[in-house]
Nucleic acid binder design. Structure first.
Length: 983
RNA sequence: AGAUCCGUAGCUCAGCCUGGUUAGAGCACUACACUGAUAAUGUAGGGGUCUCCGGUUCAAAUCCGGACGGGUCUACCA
């Protein structure tokens, strides 16, 4: 305890941060804040693991500020808040980084570099920016235990993941199936629905779209059916048509189904055309705009106007020529979609690879190239006839199976055409490799169709198309074998339990998350990559028998068993020491034995990294192999917080696994914070160069001002327009004012030797203004506590700001200055010191969760002299509790009245029409009209303050019925109506 | 295309749920005061068609409907 309060030259927030940071380090302030609460009720917080593979950004600072302030607040409220940090270490981002660095592609792995070396490299790279993360964590004042973090690639962690998977397997929730899935040729892996739902995956792109013409056919050898009632209807319609175009009649002219596609590369794999059963279709006679040949086309009636100009209807067929702009057309027949069912058509782009024989080789008995019915067809886009390639669309696949169309996959997993697709073979369907001279194969397909009289319209079409969240390349839908978790089995329970979760803001839970749950599909776990958690399932070659491993012990037993049963070289490297690393390639070298004695190999898949983080409540404790107690105490979490982009990421996987495994929520409260935009409301992106560097920001403004700004400027869930000017304002307006208030206090307290050694003077014995500020202070405590409890830190922060500026500095200190410098060191002066001291001391605690450095600094400055607390840090103290006895609402109202009246008088002095009565000029008397006696009383009680503030000698109250003021009411009609209405 | 949030002063935001003084605050701007918080502090002023159009009501920034603009999200759009 020193005798004097430290006085400073000027406020320097960054240096305060440094000073306090050093103190925390020396005194283990964080660790103590946890251990000091040993035996207190726990408040459970889960840290969402960041990936140290990328640099931290300002958006990390906001979500971590949010997490930190809640944890600090709860600690001060008497909870023990353990915060185990963690690192997300698996997954695509890391693999892609390594590929880029090594200059290889996915195909090279296992060829140019062994899987072993590749994974070794991944393991190295994973913690690349750990230093930067540790640095920002410290500098921003984020308290989290990074000494014992969970790391998702460690064996213990993976073992728990295996345990989770085997539990799911036992419950029948883990299954394998072929389905059409989003697939990223660029990344070489399928994607789960929540990966596809990452922000920014859907982008507006311009693609070559084509309306292709499929020629209706009677020739069964080309795939058509020979008999169909609608054919005769069509032909008689054509015959009856009176139209007789140049060069002969249209009878015998070709009849086409028009179908639109934005992905021409799927056309060679076409196996059907789907129409809506109840949609009206028409047969139109016209000319092909490219070849100018007479044609008959079928399309949905509702979409005719999209392709034909109204003026051309029943136009001049006889004089049509290539140079005639207006193409004549005529509707000659009409039918329902179901009448078209079963009609055959000629293949659009025949090649070696898609002959009927080839198709039936793949799917025996398949009957492709016919019109089928589907409910999903609409007439909003296209032609009302949907080109159907079962391999490349979920609906297509379904409708293909139902109608036995077969399945053709003429594109390989790298995204290029397979052999046998004529001139298109081996060409990439999209520019996945960033080839400089890439020629869009879709355009070539469209050109070919044009030349062959098989295209009606080719144009660039802008639409929203999903892209891979890591490579930014367009995905395709592709048939894949994959393992799924049957989340749909517990959908209702997930919906039900979600209703018990406290979502901030609420509508994210009911709306965004709730809707997502309602439309849930099974979780696609499979990833065909190398660096990740292997799926612990071994299968016999015939696929008849399989085994799901749930622990290292079980695996080691199976390894030995297989060696005994199968003999020879089986598992010879794994017999002595057992398994040491649960990653590829080691797990793949292990052969297990089935109950019937057949060898089993591991299925090659890895699992979705989101499973890693979703299983974090269990895996961080290596449950159930260790720490059963720790797990029990820390599940479910009381609180988690991340960016709103995690709604379908971490928030979802946590919830899904908790419900699947434990029929429980994983978290009771979740706060999702919004995006951080630049000051113009633009999304931050490296490309635009508007990314804010959190290091630079914190270095120049200090962590406290940055945190305060992030929290008070907008509610966490609103998107924040980040502007440095805002931080400067916080620095000046709030921290500057509070600092000055302290400086003022220190200056005089040092002179008078005030160290809070005198007994606490009862508030009721202090002057009214002291009672007032203390009443306001206690009201503030209530307000702040309520807001923190409701996870509304923005409101809490603004309330503190308001108190400091409007009440403490601008009114209390200003009005009381004389009390500090005049007179003897006795009752009134001590009252003033005690009051101001209490305000400052309480403010330290109230603001400590948000501005931890400044709060601790101010607390130390005060407490080092007074020694009122034995705590080393403000973060070890208890949060203030409001003293209701001190709160006097009437007094607060009175003072508000005094402020308002003073302001009004000052305004009158200045705006007097005749003369500007400066404050310096004393005035004799002011008349203040009061509405009622209560108001009059209140005014009288604060009359002294008003007199002093306005430099007036007397205050006289005028009652409502006085005749001093002559009220001349000449209301305008509008005002009258507005205020009193019309009878 | 749908869902959802948002639109108030030059800027950042309150107010709206629960309709009723002259629609508020801070920053910025202008003028002034203080000179014992002074590289501080205070006071006053200018500045608003509360996005627009309808409706309900005696009365609408506030409630209802629609349009426009912006953000976010969803989607098997072929």
């Amino acid at each position: 305890m020193s005798g004097k309060y430290t006085e400073y030259q000027q406020l320097n927030l960054p240096s305060i941060s440094e000073e306090i940071l050093a103190k925390w380090k020396n005194e283990n302030t964080f660790e103590k804040s946890v251990t000091l609460r040993e035996g207190f009720p726990p408040f459970v917080f889960y840290e969402g693991p960041p990936s140290a593979n990328g640099m931290p950004g300002i958006h990390h600072v906001i979500s971590r500020t949010l997490k930190d302030l809640v944890c600090r607040y709860k600690t001060m409220q008497g909870f023990q808040v353990k915060r185990k940090g963690g690192w997300d270490t698996h997954g695509l981002p890391i693999e892609l980084g390594v590929e880029k660095e090594l200059g290889i592609t996915k195909e090279d792995i296992g060829v140019k570099i062994s899987v072993e070396d590749y994974n070794k490299k991944c393991r190295e790279v994973v913690m690349r920016f750990k230093d930067k993360w540790d640095d920002i964590t410290q500098k921003m004042g984020y308290w989290v235990d990074l000494n014992n973090p969970y790391v998702t690639f460690e064996n213990n962690y993976v073992e728990t993941l295996w345990w989770c998977l085997s539990e799911l397997y036992k419950k029948g929730y883990l299954y394998e199936s072929v389905s059409i899935q989003p697939y990223s040729p660029a990344a070489g892996t399928g994607l789960s629905s929540h990966e596809l739902n990452q922000p920014g995956t859907y982008k507006d792109v311009k693609d070559t779209s084509a309306v292709a013409m499929f020629r209706a056919s009677l020739n069964p050898s080309k795939g058509g059916t020979s008999e169909h009632p609608t054919f005769s209807k069509i032909f008689s319609a054509i015959t009856e048509s009176k139209v007789s175009p140049k060069g002969g009649d249209l009878e015998g002219a070709e009849v086409f189904f028009m179908a639109w596609t934005t992905t021409p590369w799927t056309l060679p794999s076409n196996l059907g055309l789907t129409v809506g059963p109840n949609i009206d279709y028409v047969l139109v006679q016209t000319f092909n705009p490219y070849t100018h040949l007479p044609i008959n086309v079928i399309l949905a009636k509702a979409l005719v106007s999209k392709y034909f100009k109204a003026e051309g209807e029943n136009g001049d067929f006889e004089n049509y020529a290539a140079d005639v702009k207006l193409i004549p057309w005529k509707i000659v027949a009409e039918f329902k979609g179901k009448e078209l069912e079963g009609m055959g058509y000629e293949q659009l782009l025949p090649s070696e690879a898609n002959t009927l024989e080839k198709i039936q080789e793949i799917t025996p008995g398949a009957q492709p190239f016919k019109v089928v019915l589907g409910d999903f067809v609409t007439t909003e886009d296209g032609t009302g006839i949907v080109h159907t390639a079962p391999a490349f669309g979920a609906d297509d696949f379904k409708v293909g199976q139902k109608n036995n169309l077969g399945i053709l996959t003429l594109v390989d997993k790298q995204g290029k055409f397979t052999e046998g697709v004529g001139e298109f073979s081996n060409r990439y369907v999209k520019n996945y490799k960033d080839e400089k001279d890439y020629v869009d194969v879709n355009i070539d397909i469209a050109v070919k169709l044009k030349l062959e009289n098989r295209a009606f319209k080719v144009e660039k079409y802008e639409h929203n198309y999903p892209h891979c969240w890591r490579t930014d390349k367009p995905i395709i839908y592709y048939p894949l074998d994959a393992w799924f978790i049957k989340t749909t089995a517990v959908k209702d329970r997930m919906v039900e339990l979600n209703k018990t979760i406290n979502w901030k803001p609420a509508n994210t839970g009911t709306g965004r998350f709730g809707n997502w749950l309602e439309n849930m599909v099974d979780w696609n776990l499979s990833r065909s990559r190398f660096w990740g958690t292997p799926l612990p399932i071994w299968k016999t070659e015939d696929g008849e028998e399989e085994l799901c491993i749930g622990s290292i012990e079980e695996l080691n037993n199976e390894i030995k068993k297989a060696a005994e049963v199968l003999g020879g070289e089986t598992n010879k490297h794994y017999l002595h020491e057992g398994i040491l690393d649960l990653h590829k390639p080691y797990v793949d070298e292990i052969t297990l034995v089935s109950p019937s004695g057949k060898p089993m190999q591991r299925v090659p898949d890895l699992i979705d990294v989101w499973f890693d983080s979703g299983a974090m409540p269990y895996a961080q404790w290596h449950f159930p192999f260790e720490n059963k107690e720790s797990f029990k105490e820390s599940f479910p979490a009381d609180f988690i917080a991340e960016g709103v982009d995690q709604t379908r990421g971490w928030f979802y996987t946590l919830h899904a696994l908790a419900v699947l495994l434990f029929d429980s929520v994983a978290y009771k409260t979740v706060v999702s914070n919004g995006l951080v935009l630049d000051k113009n409301g633009q999304k931050m992106s490296k490309r635009l160069g508007n990314v804010v560097d959190p290091f630079a920001t914190i270095n120049s403004f200090g962590a406290d001002a940055t945190r305060w700004y992030l929290i008070t400027n907008a509610s966490p869930w609103d998107s924040l327009k980040f502007d440095e000017e805002g931080i400067k304002e916080v620095q000046r307006r709030f921290f500057g004012t509070l600092y000055n208030t302290y400086q003022f206090f220190a200056l005089y307290a040092n002179v008078d030797g005030f160290a809070f050694k005198e007994t606490y003077i009862p508030v009721k014995d202090r002057p009214e203004i002291d009672q007032w500020i203390l009443s306001s202070l206690n009201t503030l405590i209530k307000d702040v506590q309520d807001n923190f409890d409701a996870y509304e830190p923005t409101q809490a922060g603004r309330a503190i700001e308001d108190f400091v500026n409007a009440h403490l500095s601008n009114w209390y200190v200003r009005l009381c200055r004389r009390r500090f410098w005049k007179g003897e060191y006795e009752h009134d002066k001590i009252c003033a010191y005690q009051t101001l001291y209490e305000c400052l001391e309480t403010l330290c605690k109230l603001m400590a969760p948000v501005a931890p450095f400044f709060a601790d600094w101010l607390f130390s400055n005060l407490n080092n002299v007074s020694g009122r607390f034995s705590n080393e840090s403000v973060h070890h103290t208890d949060f203030p509790k409001a003293n209701e006895a001190v709160i006097d609402i009437d007094l607060e109202k009175r003072m508000q009245l005094a402020q308002d009246i003073s302001s009004l008088i000052l305004s009158l002095r200045k705006n007097n029409k005749k003369v500007n009565l400066k404050v310096r000029q004393p005035l004799q008397k002011v008349f203040i009209p009061a509405l009622d006696s209560t108001m009059a009383e209140r005014i009288l009680k604060v009359a002294d303050i008003i007199k002093a503030e306005t430099n007036i000698k007397e205050v006289e109250i005028l009652s409502a019925d006085n005749d001093f003021i002559q009220k001349k009411q000449k209301p305008t009609l509008r005002r009258w109506v507005k205020n009193w209405g019309v009878k």
